[in-house]
Each structure stands twice: as C-alpha cells, then as structure tokens.
Design a protein around this nucleic acid. Structure first.
Lengths: 248, 248
DNA sequence: GTCTATATCATGATAGAC
DNA sequence: GTCTATCATGATATAGAC
C-alpha cells in the first residue's frame, strides 16, 4: 500500500519487460555469436532499449552474462537435485542403476528444454556454448554455482559402479558432458549433420512440431550413446586388479 | 649463389623465426583465452615483435588464426586419410571394423599430439577450442578445408555398419567428436577433473614424462568410451525395421 | 526508470620513414 | 622486414537531464 495512489505496478512492470527483453535478446545473440563477440550495442539495439539499459539493469556486461545463465541453469540444477533425491529415496540405500543416474542428469536437462519449444533449443545451445567458453569469469561462475550438483552425481556414480575405478568414472562423466555439450551447441554443427545426411533420409528443415520430435529423438539417441560409453569395457591397461565389463 | 656475398639466409631465417614465433605465441594465447579475447597487441608484445608484424606477415588477424589452425590440422587430416587408405587397402573390399575406423580417426589425432610433448597438449586444446568456436570465418574455414576427410570417414562407417541407420551413425559420430573436443579442450576442465579426484587416486600435477603417460591413458580411456558409445544398442523408438544391437 | 550525451579506452589496420 | 605514429571504429561505462 503506497500513500501516493500512483500505479507503481505499471512502472515496475515496464521495467521488468525491458529487463526480460534484454535477457532474451542477449541470450539469442550469445548463442549465435558467443559472449565476446556480442556487444552491448547490438543487444540494446535489437531489444529496442537504450545503450545504457544494460548497465542500469545489470551493472555490467559480465553480470548480464551471469544473469542470462542463471535464469536457465538454476531450474535445471534444482530439478537435477530433486530427481536424484527421488531416486535415492526410492532405492532405500541400495545403489542406483547407472542408467537411472544418467537419465536424472541428462534427461532432466533435455526434458526441460523440450517443454518450451520456443526457448528450449536456444537454451540448449546456450548451455553447450557456455560449457566450452574460455572466459575465466564464466568458468568461475559455473564452478561456484553448480559444482555441488556435479559432486552429488559423481558420488552417486561411485556408489552405483563400485568396482569401476573412480578415476575412470570421472573421465567418462567428463566425456559424457562433452558429447552432450557439443551435440547441443552447434547451430552450424547441426547444419553439418544435416548436410551429411543423404536425401533419402529426408531430413528437411524444421516445422513447428517437428522440433519437439527432433528433441525427443536427440534425447533418445544421446542417452543410448552415453550409456553405451559409460558401460563400455575398461581399457586393457587400466587398473588390472578388478575390472568390470558390463557389456560384451 | 648471390653476387653480393651477403648472408641472405640469415635475413630470411630471421623472418621465418619471427613468423614462427608469432604463430607459437598466438596459438598459446588462443588456447588460453580464445580467439576473440586475444588481441594483436598481446600477441606481438609477447612474441617480442612489433605491433605491425602480424599484419605484415599474415595480412590480418583472421589470416593469422587460419594459419595457426592450418599448421596443425593439415598434418592430422593428411595422416587420417592415409590411415584410412591403408585400412581399406588391407581389407581388400571387405567392410572395416568400426573400432579400426575410430582408431584411424581419433587415434591418429592423439598419436600426433603425443609425439611432441611440448606442443602436443597445446595442440589438442587448440583443436577442442576450435571445434566449439562460434566465429563464422572459423567454421567456414574448417568446413572448406577438412570437410572431405569427414565425408570419407562417414562413408567408411556406413559400409562398416550396414544395418545401422545412416542418420544414427552420423549422430553418433557427432557425439564422438564432442566427447573428444570437450575432453581435450579445457585447461580448467582438467582442473575440474583433478579436483574431483580423491586424494587416494593420487593424481598429482604433471611431471616431465608423466605427461606422455597421461596422453596414453587419455587415449585409451577415450577410445574405450567412444567405441562403447558407437556400438551401444539403438534407442527403442528409432527405425524399428532393422536393428543392430552389437552389444548386450 | 529511462534516455542523451559523452568519457575513456582498446582494438585492428595502415602509411611511410628507415 | 621492422619500426613509429596515427587512424577510424567500436567497446564498456558513466553523468546528468527529464
């Protein structure tokens, strides 16, 4: 209750709109051209805002980048933790199936991306781009904010695969992150893939709801690949004492 | 033989040295901070050369980037083609083993990187960084120069896995490229990995020859993972008519 | 809260002396 | 081939009007 009777909500609503528009535009440009190559001029121009708007709303370009990331990643990682909680509760102390763990980690991501056909693909590309970004402040941000999620999943995998050397699990988790990030990242990578595809396979450009199907297929394809990689026979020369060859 | 008796070789040798030094320094900085974030000023300063040197020797920053890439990638892709030639010649018309194809593609890369303990790791990181770089001129450069190598390997995989849908093979090749690029790219990613590793696993920083062992282990670990992923069971919903489940 | 105008600086590139 | 000096441009950030 304010004593002026002025429509405060209207003013702040307009503010929110501008702020959100900046985030949306910035995200899209970051995905397309990278963080470094995207200037505040391009962002504010395309958002129909003033050049000073970013600094007013976020304080700096770095803060804008972090906000763009946080807006997406907070939810994903929150749900990742919830999914793991649910798995462990259901297992009641018994070790989890590795495929369930991967599903909770990577499946959660892909499911969230699929929910919004608009921003989903953009978000996936943003994440892929971010994971391969060299800028120090981005790497530090990711480590500070989301390290603990990786730690919990790492521990879960250790318990799920007790006779696989821990170093091996860590490496394979790393490989899986890479396959996911890269598969997801590239605008042009996808062009590359479709260019490879023979006409017989008829991979014509995306229609409205074809996108959702694409996401489904990507998810299934990726999960199959990841599980295959995680459970592959260990290399011969590694850790001879105990070896687990779950497959073949 | 020149009629002045002046030491021509010395002058041109000095040129070569400067040129090469610029390439070396640029490569290192590109790996560390990315292409965009690395200015000509930093490069020339660190190389002990004049600011104008890059433009004199290469014409532009873009050309410098391309030269840095070409210097490394030409050899890798030449040897990749030779390795595939040798495989196909030895097979005499019969389809190749998928693992042999992966070995020729990814193994060649890792072997070359291992040969030079000095520049090898840098080169690997450069490649990983490059594959995830958004800049258009870099993507175009890679496509123009090395697309045909991917095409040949793609075809080889098609023949090696005749009852796996081609689209599936292409996706999995893509996943494999991603796992490799990412595994290889990160300075800080590696810091992440070692931070994860428990003290028991005793992954202390690199000594002189520990690097070579690390490269060996990375190679074996990566190849195991890739083969596991390539040969994983196909996702249920994909292409029901013919399915190949090489493993399990 | 938003915009105009501007400050301050770093970038890639070039011209011309040596 | 290398240097100095300089250019035009575009970057982030800020001060102050409205």
């Amino acid at each position: 209750m304010n004593d002026t009777g002025l429509p405060l909500p209207t003013a702040s609503a307009s503010t929110v709109v501008t702020r959100e528009r900046l985030l949306d535009v910035a995200e899209r440009l970051f995905v397309r051209h990278g963080f470094e190559a995207t200037s505040l001029r391009k962002i504010t121009a395309e958002a129909g805002a003033n050049l000073a708007a970013v600094n007013y709303h976020f304080g700096s370009k770095e803060s804008l980048v972090q906000e763009v990331l946080r807006r997406r990643l907070d939810r994903v990682n929150r749900e990742r933790l919830l999914a793991l909680d649910a798995l462990e509760k259901a297992a009641a102390g018994k070790p989890l199936k590795p495929s369930k763990i991967l599903e909770a980690f990577f499946g959660t991501l892909l499911r969230i991306a699929k929910e919004e056909p608009q921003s989903g693909p953009t978000f996936l590309k943003l994440l892929g781009r971010t994971m391969t970004e060299p800028a120090d402040f981005i790497r530090a941000f990711l480590a500070d904010e989301y390290q603990h999620v990786l730690e919990r999943y790492k521990s879960a995998l250790f318990r799920a695969l007790p006779d696989v050397p821990r170093a091996e699990i860590i490496w394979r988790f790393h490989f899986m992150l890479g396959a996911t990030a890269y598969a997801i990242a590239g605008t042009d990578s996808l062009k590359l893939v479709t260019r490879w595809t023979e006409p017989e396979s008829a991979e014509v450009p995306r229609s409205a709801r074809k996108t959702a199907r694409d996401a489904d297929q990507l998810s299934e394809r990726l999960m199959s690949f990841l599980i295959g990689g995680l459970r592959a026979p260990l290399p011969k020369s590694i850790d001879p004492p105990e070896r687990k060859t779950p497959c073949r």
